Simulated assay, not measured.
Amino acid sequence: MSGNDHDYRHWRGLLDVLIEGAYIVDKHRKILYWNKAAEKITSYRKDEILGRSCMDNILMHVDEAGNSLCKGDCPLAKTLKDGKIREANVYLHHKDGYRKPVCIRVVPLRNDYGEIHAALELFNDKTPEEALKQRMTELEKLAMFDELTKLPNRRYVEERLEDFMNDFMRHKLRFGVIFMDIDHFKSFNDTYGHVAGDKVLKIVANTLLGASRVSDVVGRWGGEEFVALIKNVNMKTIETIAERYRLLVESSSFELNGESLSVTISIGATLAKQGDTKESIIKRADELMYISKQRGRNRLTIG
Rank of each mutant, 00 (worst) to 15 (best):
G3N: 14
G3W: 03
N4Q: 11
H10W: 09
L14K: 11
L14S: 06
L14F: 14
L14T: 12
V17A: 05
Y23R: 01
K27R: 15
H28S: 10
K30A: 06
I31M: 15
L32F: 03
Y33H: 11
K36Y: 03
A37H: 05
R45A: 11
R45C: 03
D47T: 02
G51R: 06
C54M: 06
M55W: 05
M55K: 15
M55L: 15
M55D: 14
N57Y: 03
H61K: 10
E64G: 10
G66R: 09
L69T: 02
K71M: 08
G72W: 00
D73V: 03
C74F: 01
P75N: 07
K81A: 12
I85R: 14
I85F: 02
E87W: 02
V90P: 00
L92T: 07
L92G: 14
H94S: 06
G97V: 06
Y98K: 02
K100G: 00
I104D: 10
V106P: 06
R110I: 08
R110H: 09
R110Y: 07
G114Y: 06
G114C: 10
H117D: 10
A119M: 09
L120V: 12
L122G: 04
Q134A: 11
T137N: 12
E138N: 07
L139S: 03
A143S: 06
M144S: 08
E147N: 09
R154A: 13
R154M: 06
R154P: 01
Y156G: 04
V157G: 03
E159Q: 15
D163V: 07
M165V: 11
D167G: 13
F168L: 14
F168E: 14
G176L: 07
F179E: 04
D181P: 00
D181S: 07
D181I: 04
D183R: 02
D183V: 05
K186N: 09
A196S: 14
K199V: 04
K199W: 07
I203Q: 03
A205V: 02
L208S: 07
L209Q: 15
A211K: 01
V218N: 10
G219D: 12
G219S: 09
L229Q: 03
K231I: 00
K231E: 13
N234A: 01
M235K: 15
K236H: 06
I241K: 08
R244Q: 13
R246M: 04
E250C: 00
S252W: 04
F254H: 02
E255A: 07
L256A: 01
N257S: 13
G258E: 05
E259K: 15
L261C: 04
I265N: 02
S266Q: 05
I267Y: 01
T270M: 04
A272V: 15
Q274C: 01
Q274F: 08
G275T: 08
I282N: 01
R284L: 14
A285D: 07
A285P: 03
E287C: 06
L288K: 13
Q294T: 04
N298I: 01
T301V: 11
I302K: 13
